[in-house]
């Protein structure tokens, strides 16, 4: 087992880098998009909220693997058109297609997390903000967002770990992530222990991610008193 690691360190390093960058990038991009989407979704009854719900329904209701195939092979069918508009470089690469699929997927889940956190804030706090003469925007900025952010930390940490493990699916569209590299080494050596090495890679990332989340959660000391 150790020889698989030490003999192919560069292969494993590339896989590790790709898995980390795919997960972290898609998570962060999705978070930025999910905030306004989740807030808009919390205003139930509006057309925008319904449209966003439609998106969430479709994304959560279909397997991520299907979404990955649709983006990678689906867009591949239009390669001449994509070349014309100058986007082929993006859809040609399994890595970018995987990044897009993971981001679109995570947006749906994170938007629901944001929505839940925003809707859990009692209306009475908005009134308190209004009574000290804060505008609607300031009530959002100084009351909703900090409280919601603190409350959704555990759910976001969970989503990150799920996304990390889901990212292994991109190995089927030729991305050289941890699992992709493990599958390559397995086909070379036919030794199952490469998958133990792959598993350890994911465990290390989770260990770091959990430590980061614990630190972020610890900053919100007020949560302990409620």
């Amino acid at each position: 087992m150790l020889t698989h690691l030490t003999g192919n360190l560069d292969i494993w390093m590339l896989g590790f880098r790709n898995t980390v960058s795919l997960t972290v990038l898609s998570f962060i991009i999705a978070f930025v998009v999910a905030i306004p989407m989740g807030v808009a979704r919390s205003h139930t009854g509006t057309l925008l909220s319904k449209i966003i719900y439609g998106y969430i329904y479709v994304v959560r209701g279909t397997p991520l693997l299907v979404q990955i195939f649709l983006i990678y092979y689906g867009f591949g069918q239009f390669h001449s058109e994509l070349k014309d508009v100058g986007l082929w470089w993006f859809f040609r690469e399994g890595y970018y297609c995987g990044l897009l699929a993971l981001t679109l997927n995570s947006i749906a889940y994170q938007a629901e997390i944001v929505r839940g956190a925003v809707m859990a804030i009692p209306h009475s706090l908005e009134e308190a903000g209004a009574s000290v003469s804060l505008s609607r925007m300031k009530i959002y900025r100084f009351i909703h967002i900090p409280i919601a952010t603190a409350r959704m930390m555990p759910a976001l940490g969970n989503e990150f770990v799920l996304l990390l493990k889901a990212s292994s699916l991109v190995s089927v569209i030729s991305v050289e992530d941890v699992l992709g590299q493990a599958r390559y080494l397995f086909s070379e050596t036919l030794d199952l222990s490469v998958f133990y090495v792959a598993a350890i890679n994911y465990l290390i990332i989770v260990l770091v991610a959990e430590a980061v989340m614990r630190r972020l959660e610890a900053r919100n000391t007020w949560l302990a008193f409620k």
């Binding site: 009475s124 706090l125 009134e127 308190a128 009574s131 900090p146 007020w222």
Partner: peptide, 11 residues
């Protein structure tokens, strides 16, 4: 305004 439920900002 002072409310029945205090409504202090918990964070």
């Amino acid at each position: 305004m002072v409310f029945q439920g205090f409504n202090l900002f918990p964070h």
